[in-house]
């Protein structure tokens, strides 16, 4: 069970990878780009916002 975490700038690459590895349903959690150059408070806010979705994806993956 795994979820891949990316920023939205890498969405097309993630789709390409899922196709290449024959795993079209592999769960990917997308957060807003960028994260490398934004203030830590904003990063924390985005992480908090993404957390519920992360749990949801992990639980869904486990059901499968």
């Amino acid at each position: 069970m795994a979820v891949t975490l990316i920023t939205d700038a890498f969405d097309a690459l993630a789709k390409s990878e899922k196709e290449a590895f024959g795993a079209p349903d592999h769960p990917v959690l997308v957060v807003q780009h960028p994260i490398g150059t934004v203030k830590v408070e904003e990063v924390n806010k985005r992480a908090d916002a993404a957390f519920d979705k992360l749990v949801e994806l992990l639980v869904e993956a486990r059901k499968d």
Binding site: A9, F10, A12, L13, S16, A20
Partner: peptide
Amino acid sequence: GGSYPGTTCK
């Protein structure tokens, strides 16, 4: 390899 600027080449 399928490396295309803007999508798979970032």
